[in-house]
Deep mutational scan, measured.
Amino acid sequence: MEVRTIKVFTTVDNINLHTQVVDMSMTYGQQFGPTYLDGADVTKIKPHNSHEGKTFYVLPNDDTLRVEAFEYYHTTDPSFLGRYMSALNHTKKWKYPQVNGLTSIKWADNNCYLATALLTLQQIELKFNPPALQDAYYRARAGEAANFCALILAYCNKTVGELGDVRETMSYLFQHANLDSCKRVLNVVCKTCGQQQTTLKGVEAVMYMGTLSYEQFKKGVQIPCTCGKQATKYLVQQESPFVMMSAPPAQYELKHGTFTCASEYTGNYQCGHYKHITSKETLYCIDGALLTKSSEYKGPITDVFYKENSYTTTIK
């Protein structure tokens, strides 16, 4: 009895394709271990004539594949690729409408935090270190965002349907971005203890939790000093293409032309909904596939993004 075979390709990165001759009487799992086709788990399936010449994702289970996976995804987590594939199996079914010149995501599976993050990423200057993220990001900007969303979920250790947080998501993504040249110098002034300067680099240099107003941050924000008295913390120097200011959701007025974009969060910790506000020729609110415009805006804002380049204080 002759062994019926077909020729397929296996890959971990969709760049390096490895030619395989597979036995049609055995499952993919018996031949390769966990195997995925377009995100779908085909591990328990036997090869079919229609699979001839198709590319299958496999887990990096030998040295060659491990090197290829690390170079593309910059992670050695053995569960990463499987999590990416199972997320992709959902995100490829989502709709990605162009809204006001940006790629958004039609609401499904509690994905409003991903839509808000995706919209924000198209408006701030950011370059990702893992080629996987950078490639998928370019495709997302062009309207094909399924891979990018699935990668975000995998890097953030999230599953489809789980509630997510924009600030946490951005923080994970910033860790995989090139923020080497970003720098922030802060000064804390206390009447009792004097003053202390701190220099922050990388992710810490672009994120701040405690106030939404970048102007206020430049002037000074009140913080408790270690001595128990009130101290003032203010920005001395900022070198970065953008800054992200966050605070627990509270009524906040966004003035046209003073910011790049913002995240609105309605609801409580267990259950809520994100919308995205962007400042173009007027203010726009993007909620999944829905767009509304207004000249002014007041609502429960939790993150505001500002364009920056270089700032030095005039406070002496």
Rank of each mutant, 00 (worst) to 15 (best):
A132P: 05
Q222S: 13
L114Q: 03
K219L: 12
S295R: 11
Q251A: 14
V304S: 00
A250W: 05
Q238V: 01
S104E: 04
Y311V: 07
L59Y: 15
Q31C: 13
S25L: 12
K7L: 09
A40N: 15
G299E: 01
T116A: 15
M244I: 05
T35Q: 05
A140C: 12
V221E: 06
E296K: 15
G39M: 10
G220D: 03
D41T: 12
E281V: 03
Q197H: 07
R83N: 14
S181I: 09
A69D: 10
A250Q: 13
A247E: 02
D62F: 07
F32L: 10
S50W: 11
K218H: 04
G228A: 02
E253W: 07
W107E: 03
Y265G: 03
Q175W: 07
K219A: 11
C261D: 00
S246I: 00
Y311G: 08
S25A: 12
Q123N: 06
P97L: 15
M170A: 01
D38F: 13
L37F: 12
E168Q: 09
N49V: 13
N157D: 11
V67H: 11
Q230Y: 12
N16A: 08
Y113A: 03
T103H: 06
Y274T: 00
K293Q: 06
F259W: 00
K298G: 06
G220E: 05
A140D: 00
K44C: 07
L59H: 15
Q237A: 14
F305H: 00
F217C: 05
C156I: 11
L88V: 06
D77K: 06
D38R: 11
R139T: 15
R4C: 13
Y306N: 00
K158A: 04
Y265E: 01
K293E: 11
F174Q: 01
H51P: 04
G272T: 01
P248C: 07
Y297P: 01
A115T: 12
Y138L: 12
S294H: 14
L65V: 08
I124P: 03
Y297F: 09
G143I: 02
S171G: 11
M245H: 01
T292L: 08
D287R: 01
T278N: 06
T314S: 11
I223T: 14
T159G: 13
T292F: 07
K183V: 11
C190R: 02
S213E: 07
G194N: 05
T226W: 07
P300G: 05
I124N: 04
V22N: 04
H48M: 14
G288I: 00
T226H: 15
Y28A: 05
H273K: 00
C285Y: 03
D23E: 12
R4M: 11
L102T: 06
V8K: 05
D23Y: 13
S79Y: 11
F56W: 04
D135N: 12
M244F: 03
A136Y: 11
I301C: 04
I223S: 12
V21Y: 15
G194W: 02
A250P: 00
T313P: 07
C285W: 04
V185C: 06
Y138H: 13
K229F: 12
V304G: 00
L212I: 09
V22T: 11
P34D: 09
T76R: 14
K191T: 11
L290T: 10
T27Y: 13
R141E: 06
T5S: 09
Y297W: 14
T120E: 05
Q123F: 02
R184I: 02
T192F: 11
V206G: 01
N61F: 15
G164T: 03
G267M: 04
S86K: 12
A146K: 07
D62P: 08
D135K: 10
K280M: 10
D109Q: 09
V99Q: 08
M245V: 02
P97G: 05
E71W: 07
G267K: 05
Y57H: 10
V206R: 01
L163N: 04
N187H: 14
V188N: 07
I6V: 10
F128S: 03
Y36N: 06
N100F: 07
N178Y: 07
K255D: 06
I152V: 11
K275E: 00
D135R: 11
G29C: 15
L121T: 11
M244E: 01
Q216P: 03
K46T: 13
G272S: 01
T198G: 05
G29P: 05
K54L: 15
S240H: 04
N89K: 14
G39S: 14
E2H: 10
S240G: 07
Q30C: 14
Y155H: 05
F148A: 04
Y28M: 08
D303F: 02
L37T: 11
F174C: 05
E144Y: 14
N147D: 10
C261F: 01
P78Q: 14
V221A: 05
H273F: 01
A247G: 06
R66Y: 11
G194F: 04
T10C: 13
N16E: 08
G267T: 06
M170Y: 03
S181G: 09
R66M: 13
T27G: 09
K275Q: 06
A205L: 01
Y208F: 08
T226Q: 14
E264A: 10
Q222W: 08
A40S: 12
V304Y: 02
S50T: 14
A154G: 06
E281I: 04
Q30E: 12
P224N: 12
E215C: 07
Q197M: 12
T76D: 14
Y96H: 02
M209L: 09
N100W: 03
G202E: 05
C156G: 06
Q98K: 15
D62K: 14
D13L: 04
L119T: 01
M207Y: 06
S240T: 04
A142M: 15
H176T: 05
G164R: 03
Q122T: 04
E264S: 07
W107A: 06
L114E: 03
Q134K: 13
P97E: 14
N187K: 09
Y73I: 02
W107L: 02
E168M: 14
S79M: 12
E2Y: 11
G210C: 02
L186G: 02
D287S: 02
G210N: 01
A146D: 10
Y306D: 00
Y234W: 09
Y28T: 04
P34C: 12
K298W: 13
